[in-house]
Structure formats: structure tokens, C-alpha cells
Amino acid sequence: MTTVAIRDDATGTKANMSAIYDQADPRAYFRELGKLDYAIPAAAQPVFQRMVDAIRARRKGTVHALDLGCSYGINAALLKYPLAMADLQARWTDPVLHGIDSDAVREVDRAYFDAQPCADVRVIGLDPSEPAIAYAEDVGILDDGVTLDLERNAVPPALAETLAPIDMIVSTGCVGYVTQRTFAALMPAVTAGAAPWIGNFVLRMFPYDAIEQTLGGWGYVTEKLEGETFAQRAFASDIEQERVMAQVDRLGLDTAGLEADGALHAEFFLSRPKNEADIPLADLIDQAT
């Protein structure tokens, strides 16, 4: 395994990869995470697409999404364009891009994404990395980007207006770095309009109870997809694996066949307004696979 520093997150267990989120383009992100078989966006893509389809069937028209912890807009690209995670991985690790600067990468990426057929989905991204947000906005993957720490700050009035039409909130790994405080900050704004569905892929090392309780206070019903986990990526070091497994063990969960086999695993939670939670989550996901 590659040995890296340990990140100071909510539990002090995960590998420090902050440097790959602070680049002017996604090449380092895909190069380094590709070494670790980063897979969660690919696993999430059909699930999020089923959310889009189900929401559109109910509400009609353009679906507005908010991606929490969006980094370079990976989930947005997979929602908006006929692309797979493998396409993005191949593109941003292509040796042709190795010898050019970030401005040139942005120029060719603008042309690349402009040429893609685009679904009737608009995506706002929220992430603490200004360079990642700037890139994703510049090349058109994100329709809007926000750099704001909602663990410590309220939603400004101007942003609240932007968030009011949101139909769905998604994430593929930020829960644990963000907590119920972020969701408590978001809910007044996002429920002023469409009352979004909220789909989170959550690493098993992070309890979800506090977020579920927060959303329940806003009239939401939360379901976990039972009996299924999703590999996020391989562990970056033996130390990371040991610490994550210890945390999962403390939660009373069995790591056999999952973290013990060398990868971080996530579970999927879907929270919906009570009046739109009529289709069981398992049935909804069956239609996505």
C-alpha cells in the first residue's frame, strides 16, 4: 500500500489527500485516486439517475441538484452527460494532457463538455476547495459552485434563493467531514421551495443517526438500503485500514469481507418528504440496476 499522512477528520482515521483537491484541474485527483481504485461515483451513478427519473416523474421539468463535497464536479458530470467514471478516469490520466498547463486543460475541457449531449439537469456544487469549484464552473460541469463551510456558517440570503429550487441533494463521501450541522443549515433554504430528496453514500465508519434525526425534524423519512454496501476506494495505507477497522468495530459492525478485505465501504441512505416516500427504497434501487 501507498503510505500517506493521516487526515484530521471527524475520527482522525482517514488518509490525508487534501493536496489533490487543491489543484487547478482534476489530473492529480484522478491520478492518485485511480491508484486506489476509486469507485464510489460509478456505484452512485445509477442510483442518482434513478432519483432524477423518479423526481422528474413527480415534479416535471428540469431537475435541480446540489452535490455536497463535489470536488471537481464528478457526480455532476455523470448526471449531466452520457459518460461513465471510466471515461473521466481515462480522460484525465491521458498522457496527452501531461505536458500542458492547467489553462490549456481548461480550454480543451470546455470544448469537450460543450460537445457532450446534456441532460435536463442543473447541478450546484458545494465544496471547501476553491480551485476545484473554480475549475468545475469554468468548464461548465457545474452550473453554479459554492465555497462555504456550513459546519460553521449560516446560508447567506442570496444563496438561500439559489437553493430554493433544489430537487435533490447528493453526496458520495463528505458525510463525516460534514455533520448534522451542515444539513441543519441547509434545510430552511432548500425546503422553502421544492423540498429535495436527499441521497447520501456514507462510509460505515460514520454513524448517520444525528443527520437522520435532523432531517426527521423537517418531516423527512430516511431509509437505508439494507444488505448492500459500496466500495469507495482501497485503503491508502495499513495504518488507515487499521484505524478505520477499529472505528467500524467500535460501532459493532462486522468488517469481514468488507474493510478487512482492503477497501472503505459505504452504505446508501435516502431521505424524502413523507408525502413522497411511497415507493420503498429497495424498489427504487431495483429499477436503477
Rank of each mutant, 00 (worst) to 15 (best):
S102V: 03
A119H: 03
E161T: 14
P156T: 05
P157T: 08
Q89A: 15
P165F: 09
P188Y: 12
F113L: 00
D109G: 03
L186F: 07
G99T: 04
L186E: 06
R122I: 13
L148P: 10
A160D: 07
A136Q: 03
I100A: 02
P117Q: 11
I169K: 07
W92N: 08
D87E: 12
F183A: 03
Y177W: 14
G173K: 03
V96P: 04
G145S: 07
G140T: 00
P165E: 08
D167G: 09
A132V: 01
M85C: 04
T191D: 06
L97F: 12
Q116E: 05
P95F: 04
Q180W: 14
A164M: 14
D109H: 02
E130F: 02
L163Q: 11
V105W: 01
V96T: 13
L150V: 12
Q116I: 00
T162M: 14
I166H: 06
Q180T: 12
G99N: 09
T172S: 15
A115L: 07
D138W: 00
I133E: 00
M187S: 05
T172D: 13
G125C: 08
V96R: 12
Q89L: 15
A160F: 04
P165A: 07
T191N: 07
D94S: 11
D109M: 02
V170C: 15
A84D: 13
L97R: 13
A194Y: 02
E130D: 04
I166C: 14
D127C: 01
L150E: 12
D101T: 06
P165D: 08
I166Y: 02
V123Q: 05
Y135I: 01
P165H: 09
S171Q: 10
V155H: 11
T93G: 07
T191W: 05
T93F: 06
V108M: 14
V178T: 14
L159K: 07
G145N: 05
L186R: 06
A192K: 06
M168R: 08
T147A: 13
I166K: 09
L163T: 09
A104S: 14
P95V: 03
Q180L: 13
R106I: 04
F113Q: 00
A194L: 02
V108L: 14
Q180E: 15
L186S: 06
P117R: 09
E107D: 11
D114Q: 12
P117Y: 07
M187H: 04
G125V: 10
A86P: 00
D94R: 07
R110E: 05
Y135E: 01
V139E: 01
T172I: 12
A84L: 06
Y135A: 02
P156Q: 04
D103S: 09
G176S: 10
A160Q: 05
A158P: 06
T172G: 13
R152K: 15
L148V: 06
R110I: 11
I133F: 01
D138V: 01
P95Q: 02
P95M: 03
E137Q: 10
Q116A: 04
L88A: 11
V123F: 05
Y177Q: 15
D120A: 08
D114K: 13
L186D: 10
G99Y: 05
P165Y: 08
D101F: 04
A136I: 02
A90F: 06
T172N: 15
D87M: 08
Q116R: 07
V105Q: 02
D167P: 04
F183N: 04
A154T: 15
D103H: 08
P95N: 02
D149W: 09
D143I: 01
A134L: 01
R122P: 08
A184V: 12
D109T: 10
V139P: 00
L97N: 11
